[in-house]
Design a protein around this nucleic acid. Structure first.
Lengths: 230, 230
DNA sequence: TGAATAGTGTCTATGAGACAGTATGTA
DNA sequence: TACATACTGTCTCATAGACACTATTCA
């Protein structure tokens, strides 16, 4: 019997939000080697007697100050364990995807010198490369979010408790990077059973006719789906 | 700085095939404790300088005798790391999903006393419980397969190189546990660009009119999707 | 010939997309 | 009033599902 290899297990977080009609991710600037000074996804090591998801939620709060109640949605994304992905040696990283509405100004903590919320397009740019294989992890998370908006009600995770159809459409447009017809989108969303539920309230203060306020519905899956292409 | 917890990393395999018009999984009977004598998913520990996917492919061949060329499709499924999922202590398990056409009679190897290909419905049965959290892993894999048949061309991974539309429909029917209209299915599959490509050959020997033989097309995603419900 | 399966035609209902038109607010 | 945005109506096209029908084999 050969000796079994034991590896440190990390969780890394792809934290997405929509800010100024752009899909953005939260990254921190590393304060220690390796990759000191470079931007990276927040994350940390799993502790004893802690599940992977618990570790992800703990790191989310510790590294960014986001409280559990502020998280719109969290799910496991994928696991990365290629030899050489960390120059210090073999490390397994279980990536989690978190969707957050109205992400507040980040609070740097732990070994992070700085934190920022930046458009995902700027982060996958090859010149300002993210540390480790984090660009790949981020892209996996972005693609997961894009795909799940099609056939689930996940888009509401980017909105607060109360939202207008307009703001929900802005979420789709930001995540997909594509304009949608306001009229058809409105009908589609309000006619899909369980997607959104109308309240008696209306928005105010903007130009134009006030919009009705909606809350999230019960449905998780959308039938039929809302497709990005075609 | 607290000491970083290091854990053994395993890969577990959900190996699915369609046999006698039923969706089946390959399981092995454990020869060692814990759970000795119980059925479990094949798997093993990741070795040094080996990627997770390499480990999964290696275990697939070592534990079941399935050669790489025989595997129709393989992808990472999910990672399970709850404390207490293995009575021996903390273990991370990265599950992989493999789809195999015409799965040959399994060759038991390693610490397995026996191996079998059994309908997934019988394996998630509560009375003959799978070892560890393998019932949950299996269900995750089955649901992934069911979902991906909808919007990808993955069903062809269950067929050999050459197949008829009839056998492709049998795959859908087995995986979804639902009858499909042969006429509409035929039109849908042959009209979806890149799903299947017709050859000049025809099947023979069965009753009824011989069917045209098809091979896999280039398309990975199906537009529009082929939905199970509605 | 009949049974069985392959494959096509066609009708209907549903939904997406385009876009005109109406409703209701602010400047 | 002009304008902006919310929302509804309506037309067209694509596609799914039901199912009748034709094609081609074997017994």
């Amino acid at each position: 019997m050969t000796k079994i290899l034991k590896m440190p297990v990390a969780v890394d977080l792809v934290i997405l939000t929509v800010k100024d009609s752009e899909l953005c991710a939260l990254v921190i600037r590393r304060g220690i080697e390796p990759f000191s000074g470079q931007w990276a996804l927040p994350g940390g090591f799993v502790r004893q007697d802690e599940s992977l998801e618990q570790a992800a939620r703990r790191e989310l709060q510790e590294e960014t100050g986001i409280k559990p109640a502020e998280v719109g949605h969290m799910e496991q994304l994928a696991t990365f364990g290629d030899p050489g992905r960390d120059p210090r040696g073999p490390v397994i990283s279980v990536a989690y995807l978190a969707l957050v509405p109205n992400l507040p100004a980040p609070t740097a903590g732990g070994d992070a010198h700085d934190a920022k919320i930046a458009p995902v397009d700027s982060l996958v740019d090859a010149r300002r490369k993210l540390a480790f294989d984090h660009a790949k992890i981020l892209e996996t998370g972005v693609e997961r979010a894009r795909a799940k908006l099609e056939y689930t009600s996940l888009a509401t995770a980017f909105c607060g408790d109360r939202f207008t159809i307009h703001s929900l459409r802005r979420v789709y447009e930001a995540v997909w990077g594509k304009r949608l017809d306001p009229a058809n989108f409105h009908r589609k969303v309000t006619k899909t059973p369980g997607f959104v539920v109308a309240t008696e309230e209306h928005s105010q203060g903007d130009s134009g006719r006030p919009a009705q306020i909606y809350v999230k519905g019960d449905a998780k899956a959308l039938h039929p789906a809302l497709l990005r292409n075609s």
